[in-house]
């Protein structure tokens, strides 16, 4: 990747973990605890859907956040952040015009170019904030609709208000060959969609197991069950991709924190083909 610091001699390379001062161009409130930060990208830094950046808030700390927007050549890079830990609880409160530190992009990408070559159907399965690293896939598949087959998006969340990006759903659905289905754990009185779990949607979604690429991101429990459901429906494991989460500190494979047996999730992942990680998913405390 041209955006990566690279110097085979090492000694002369610039600090690979030095953040770039980056202005926040816009803050979009997505839900009670989630915002999207649109960060300046006037330099036109590119990324591949599925990759993440490290965001640093002055005096607070740093956290890995997947890139949730596009298009690739856009003037801003969107990062959807949910208040969940010490850093993100403050990061969701930054204001337009603030400067934060950014380094990246890091990590592996969803295999959408390969899918385009074979003109596969795309099955996106997202749980909660797990939709964020998949939104660039959706954008890509909408923009280049002719290069892909169907685009099926199954999105589960806790409550209707947690279905982030809902303001865009009608626009997504307007493209030909796009199906978007949502489900929530707990409904509210004005919710007209299904109440249940993500595998309920999967059970009633028709897809061609010979011709579909599945991309899954959500809580680890959800991914374990979705994976069994997909395999049970005849989808070959090598066409199922998952985005895994581990503690990312350095993001360049040096600090050791994100290890998952043989893998450094920061550089070998976060996106993995199921066969690479299948046995590891069932093992506790790896």
């Amino acid at each position: 990747m041209e955006t990566r610091a690279s110097d085979p001699n090492g000694a002369a390379s610039p600090a690979p973990t030095l953040p770039r001062a980056t202005p926040v161009r816009r803050v979009i409130r997505e839900s009670a605890d989630t915002v999207t930060l649109e960060l300046d990208n006037s330099v036109g830094r590119s990324f591949a859907p599925g990759q993440f950046n490290m965001l640093y808030l002055f005096g607070v700390g740093e956290v890995a956040v997947s890139i949730s927007g596009g298009p690739v050549e856009s003037q801003v890079l969107a990062h959807t952040v949910r208040a969940a830990g010490a850093v993100t609880r403050l990061l969701v409160n930054v204001k337009r015009g603030a400067t934060i530190g950014v380094r990246g992009p890091y990590g592996s990408a969803w295999p959408i170019e390969g899918a385009a070559r074979e003109r596969l159907d795309l099955l996106v399965v997202a749980g909660g904030i797990g939709i964020a690293p998949l939104r660039p896939v959706i954008y890509h598949a909408l923009r280049e609709r002719h290069r892909f087959g169907r685009l099926i998006v199954l999105f589960g969340a806790r409550r209707p208000d947690d279905l982030i990006y809902a303001r865009e759903f009608n626009r997504w659905r307007a493209y030909p060959g796009v199906e978007l289905r949502t489900i929530v754990d707990h409904g509210s009185s004005n919710w007209r969609g299904p109440v249940g779990i993500i595998t309920d949607l999967l059970a009633t979604t028709d897809f061609d197991h010979d011709d579909t690429l599945a991309m899954v991101c959500g809580p680890e429990v959800m991914m374990r069950f979705v994976r069994h459901a997909l395999v049970g429906r005849g989808l070959p494991p090598e066409r199922i991709y998952l985005s895994l989460e581990r503690n990312m500190k350095c993001a360049i494979g040096h600090c050791g924190h994100c290890q998952l047996l043989p893998f450094f999730v920061c550089k070998d992942g976060p996106i993995f083909a199921l066969p690479k990680v299948a046995p590891l998913l069932d093992m506790r405390e790896l």
Partner: peptide, 16 residues
């Protein structure tokens, strides 16, 4: 019952 168990887990809760 399976659904109910999953909903009980509340897997999408922040910090869960």
């Amino acid at each position: 019952l399976e659904r109910a168990r999953f909903q009980l887990l509340d897997i999408y809760r922040a910090g869960s």
